[in-house]
C-alpha cells in the first residue's frame, strides 16, 4: 500500500484499507467463505476423530485391566471380561436370559411410561398454577426426598407380589424426579414470555399449546433421561423384593450359585440397557427440540 505524500497518514490508511477490502471480487470472497467453512468442517471432523480415539483407548485400558485382574484372581470373586461375555452368551442360549430380559423390559416400559406421564401432568400443573403448587408440592417434595426403596415393602402389602406391584414400584421410582424437574422447568419459562403471551392476547388454551408445553419439552426430556436410570433401579429392586422375575431373578440365581461371571454378565447387560435408552432419548431430544442445537448464523444443520 503506498501513501500519497500530501495525504494525512490516518486517512491514507483508512483509504488503503477500504481499497483492499473493496478489491476482493465477489467471487473471491465467496471462494474464501467456502474455504473457511471447509476448514471449520475439517477441524470439527478431526476433533470428533480425536475424541473417538480417546474413547476407544479408554475402553481398551479398562477392559484390558479387567481381563488381567480377572485372570489372576479367584473365579468366585471376579471373572475376566471374556468369561463374562461368554457366560452372558450361555445365559441367552441355554438359560432364559432372553425371556427374562423381555419381561423386565416390559414391566420397565409400562412403569416408566406411567411415571413419566404422571410426572409431566403433575409437574406442569404445579408449575403453571400456584394453587396446585400450594395444594400438592408439600407431598411431592416429601416423597421426592424419601428413598423409594422404603415404600417397596408397603407396596407389596397393598398390592401383592405380581407384575402390577412391580410396575407400580417402577413408576414410583420414575415419577418424583420427573415431577420436580418439569415443575422447575415450567417455572423457569421466561416471565417475559408469559407476559408476551398475555400481551399477544393468547387465551388459556393457546398459552398452553404455544408457550407452556413447548417450553417444557427440554425439561421433560431431562426428567425422562434421569428417569431411565431411576426406572432401572426400580426394576431390579422390584424384582428382588417382590417375586423373583426377569433380570433380577437372573442376577440373584447366578450370584447365589457362585456364578460370578454370569452375575457380572447380567450387570453388564443392565448397563448396556441404560446407555442405549439414554442414547435413544438423546435422539428424541434432537428431534423434538431442534431450536436448542442451532448455532447462530450457520444455517440449518440437520
Amino acid at each position: 500500500m503506498s501513501l500519497t505524500r500530501n495525504d494525512p497518514p490516518v486517512a491514507g490508511v483508512a483509504d488503503g484499507a477500504r481499497t483492499a477490502s473493496a478489491s476482493l471480487a465477489a467471487s473471491d470472497a465467496e471462494a474464501i467463505g467456502r474455504e473457511v467453512i471447509a476448514a471449520r468442517r475439517r477441524r470439527s471432523k478431526r476433533d470428533r476423530r480425536k475424541f473417538l480415539a480417546v474413547r476407544l483407548v479408554s475402553l481398551a485400558v479398562v477392559f484390558g485391566a479387567w481381563q488381567l485382574y480377572g485372570m489372576h484372581t479367584i473365579a468366585i470373586l471376579f471373572a475376566p471380561i471374556t468369561t463374562v461375555v461368554h457366560s452372558g452368551y450361555n445365559l441367552f442360549a441355554h438359560a432364559q436370559l432372553g425371556s427374562q430380559l423381555g419381561y423386565s423390559m416390559w414391566t420397565f416400559a409400562i412403569g416408566y411410561l406411567i411415571g413419566v406421564a404422571v410426572g409431566i401432568a403433575v409437574g406442569m400443573l404445579m408449575g403453571a398454577y400456584r394453587v396446585v403448587e400450594a395444594a400438592v408440592s408439600l407431598y411431592v417434595f416429601a416423597l421426592y426426598a424419601t428413598p423409594m426403596v422404603a415404600l417397596v415393602p408397603i407396596m407389596t402389602l397393598w398390592i401383592g407380589f405380581d407384575a402390577t406391584a412391580q410396575i407400580v414400584i417402577i413408576a414410583l421410582f420414575v415419577t418424583w424426579p420427573m415431577i420436580v424437574t418439569v415443575f422447575h422447568g415450567v417455572r423457569q419459562i421466561d416471565a417475559e414470555l408469559m407476559e408476551v403471551s398475555r400481551s399477544l392476547r393468547l387465551n388459556r388454551r393457546q398459552t398452553w399449546v404455544h408457550v407452556l408445553l413447548p417450553g417444557a419439552v427440554p425439561f421433560v426430556i431431562t426428567g425422562a433421561t434421569q428417569g431411565v436410570a431411576m426406572g432401572l433401579v426400580g426394576v431390579i429392586i422390584a424384582e428382588l423384593q417382590t417375586q423373583l422375575t426377569g433380570l433380577g431373578a437372573a442376577l440373584q440365581t447366578e450370584a447365589q450359585t457362585y456364578h460370578t461371571a454370569g452375575a457380572l454378565a447380567v450387570v453388564l447387560l443392565i448397563m448396556v440397557l441404560g446407555v442405549t435408552l439414554r442414547a435413544i432419548l438423546g435422539l428424541v431430544q434432537r428431534f423434538l427440540v431442534p431450536w436448542m442445537r442451532l448455532d447462530r448464523g450457520d444455517g440449518k444443520r440437520r
Binding site: 417475559e192 414470555l193 407476559e195 408476551v196 400481551s199 404455544h210 413447548p214 417450553g215 427440540v289 431450536w291
Partner: peptide, 14 residues
C-alpha cells in the same frame, strides 16, 4: 395496542 419488548419476547421454539 401492541408491544415491542426489550428482550425481543420471541418464542425460541418457533
Amino acid at each position: 395496542v401492541a408491544v415491542v419488548f426489550q428482550h425481543f419476547g420471541l418464542f425460541p421454539w418457533k
